[in-house]
Simulated scan of single mutants.
Amino acid sequence: MGLAGGPAAVGWRVGLLERFAFSPAVLEQVLQGHWGDMSLLLRFVSYAFLHGSVTHALFAGALLLALGKFVGEEMGQGATLAVFIAATIGGALAFGAFAVDTQPLFGSYPGIYGLIGAFTYLLWLRLGRTGENRLKAFRLIGGLLAVQLLFGALFGANPQWIADIGGFVAGLAAATVFAPGGWAALRQRLRAR
């Protein structure tokens, strides 16, 4: 927007995307054995701190604060951070595995969808305790995916939805471990089966 750096700042965003954004090529390089290159491994998380515009960052920040507050109150701050990071990595893995486009992945939305996954799990537990239908917990993600489908049909699909779904699944899975009593409850359910 020209608020910082003057004319020399024109290439800053592009430079940051080139250094810290994630793409399927990054996963390909890691799978080929380039584990020693920390700059590649850093991209599995660093992309979440880059945004395409001020509006993109503001919406992400508002969603992160709202969902982080709820999940943090239920699970604690450390567990909420762990879910966010796991979802960010899960979103990158899904994007790297299934996206065929060379467009880079950036933005914190896969991590935010991971917090939606944790919210879904916590709601699922609460509905189970009250004896209600647990499928109601999945209404939020169902509505969000329907909205993304609608926007994709109207304005063209963006492959970043793959990372969002990967983040949701990773956040849902991480919440089963990081929720209060989650690891013990998960172990008990597995033993019962």
Rank of each mutant, 00 (worst) to 15 (best):
A157N: 09
Q29A: 15
E28P: 05
T80L: 03
A66C: 09
Y47H: 14
A184S: 14
M75L: 13
Q188I: 07
V71M: 08
G143M: 13
L186Y: 02
A92Y: 01
G107F: 00
A48W: 00
L186K: 07
V54H: 10
E73T: 12
R129H: 14
G11D: 15
P180R: 07
V45S: 10
A9E: 07
K69Q: 09
A118K: 07
F119M: 12
S53R: 10
A86I: 02
S46M: 04
L31D: 07
G117I: 01
G52V: 08
F178I: 08
A97F: 10
V26S: 01
S23L: 02
K69G: 00
E18F: 09
M1K: 11
A66S: 13
W12M: 08
L127C: 12
V169I: 12
G107R: 03
G90R: 02
F106A: 09
L135K: 01
I85K: 04
L172M: 09
R187G: 05
F178N: 05
S46F: 04
A173G: 08
A4M: 13
Y113H: 14
G11P: 04
M1D: 12
A157S: 12
S53P: 06
A92R: 01
A153W: 15
G114L: 06
L16R: 11
A87M: 06
G90C: 05
L154R: 14
L140D: 03
Y47R: 01
G143S: 11
L41E: 02
A173S: 12
E28I: 04
L135E: 14
V54G: 10
L67D: 04
T176M: 14
R139C: 15
L65V: 13
V71S: 06
A157C: 06
A62P: 00
R134G: 05
F119Y: 13
G2D: 03
A8Q: 12
